[in-house]
Design a protein around this nucleic acid. Structure first.
Lengths: 216, 216
DNA sequence: GGCCTTATCACATCATTATGCGAGCAAGCC
DNA sequence: GGCTTGCTCGCATAATGATGTGATAAGGCC
């Protein structure tokens, strides 16, 4: 690579934006085209800064990352855009993929991996974490075969689904225990299993996943 | 994981089959369920050997890996299948993905990565090389992107909406504080106001309401 | 200049959740 | 019968969340 890869950052968190800038700026073969806190001027940013690769935070006030991605791809389809986010919910992955994202990474990605990812994108790859890749695969239409569909919405047992439903309704552990006439510890036990099966670690994540994936 | 992950190998090359077997057999947390040279008896192999994860070579005489994959998924959709191949041609990736593959690796993948991949699959991820991931993304229909109907801020301030969005993503107070570079107490303060405005009393209720009313 | 809203931060206290380790029981399956 | 799965319960501890009572500062508004 005789010409460095120009990277543009959109990230509204100043701390992260600065540390990303420093990381990229200090890496041979890369050149920081810019580091912006929002997508408001994305339409003019791109022709002005001419990035090869854009790192785009998804959660930004104003124009969010998905919208920014769409705008970039609408006018500059050859610019590679890697989405950055903290959580990997189905809906956003879907939107990002449909809008033409070229990669999808978690913010907790270690710096070395991030640099690898930029090189991969430049080389025509699509860096993404395995968990996200799994979701992308699941977005696929499964044509033939008897496989698939609603024998188990997520391998949750009937009881687990029931309790998940109550969580979605805003019930607390206590309320669930009382409502179903079981002990608080039993509720804990069910919820622990639900977390395992859904790969989440908190009530909010479980609720979010349940609503987005129609598990209720 | 108290119970080891049972891995079944389909690989027609005896040398590779043996070396894979040794690799997996010698790894704590994994258990070699079997190592077979063909897919002829795949329908009976699975219930007999009960693997959690199957490593499936694509190029095999007789029943090939794609067909083997289909047969596994037809009867045991919860069994994870990772495809192994030397090629990364578009057609095979497409077929494998459509048939429900849970991962797609090249045979040249180093042993350590392969072990990582097995753990990732077990954890709900879908390991694949970036180059393959890119192909998968390209298989996607670019056009459509549902939703999108920006409605009223529902009397939440911009900042409040932003934080509510993070709650929906599963962020904890700590994570929000860190991500936004504000103190934990400030996060509490915002969330208290959000609760007042939404008339809820817990994170789950807020998340549920946000998702249902499209406040994000 | 007052008045109001929003955003920021602090401290305190109590309630709830998250997790780990176990354990017993019933139903269903080779 | 032995095995597995789902449902039930208990205990203990650490981490988080919920709530109350303030306070300071910036910005818009009349």
């Amino acid at each position: 690579m005789e010409t460095p890869t120009r990277v543009l950052i959109y990230e509204d968190n100043p701390d992260l934006r600065i540390s990303l800038s420093q990381l990229l700026g200090g890496t041979p073969g890369l050149e920081l085209a810019g580091a912006l806190g929002n997508c408001q001027q994305v339409d003019t940013d791109i022709p002005r800064l001419k990035p090869d690769v854009v790192l785009m935070d998804i959660d930004m006030p104003g124009i969010n990352g998905i919208e920014g991605l769409k705008r970039i791809k609408a006018k500059n389809p050859s610019t590679s855009v890697v989405m950055l986010t903290v959580f990997e919910d189905n809906d956003r992955v879907f939107q990002a993929v449909c809008a033409g994202a070229d990669g999808y990474l978690l913010k907790k990605t270690p710096p070395a991996k991030l640099l690898d990812a930029i090189n991969e994108v430049k080389a025509g790859g699509a860096p993404m974490t395995p968990a996200i890749a799994r979701q992308v695969l699941r977005l696929f239409p499964k044509p033939v075969a008897p496989r698939q569909q609603e024998d188990s919405p997520a391998n949750l047992s009937a009881r687990e689904q029931e309790i998940l439903g109550l969580l979605v309704e805003g019930y607390s552990y206590k309320m669930i225990a009382h409502d179903r006439g079981i002990s608080l510890d039993t509720v804990r036990s069910h919820i622990k299993k639900i977390y395992e099966k859904l790969h989440v670690r908190s009530m909010t994540e479980a609720v979010s996943k349940a609503l987005r994936q129609g598990l209720t």
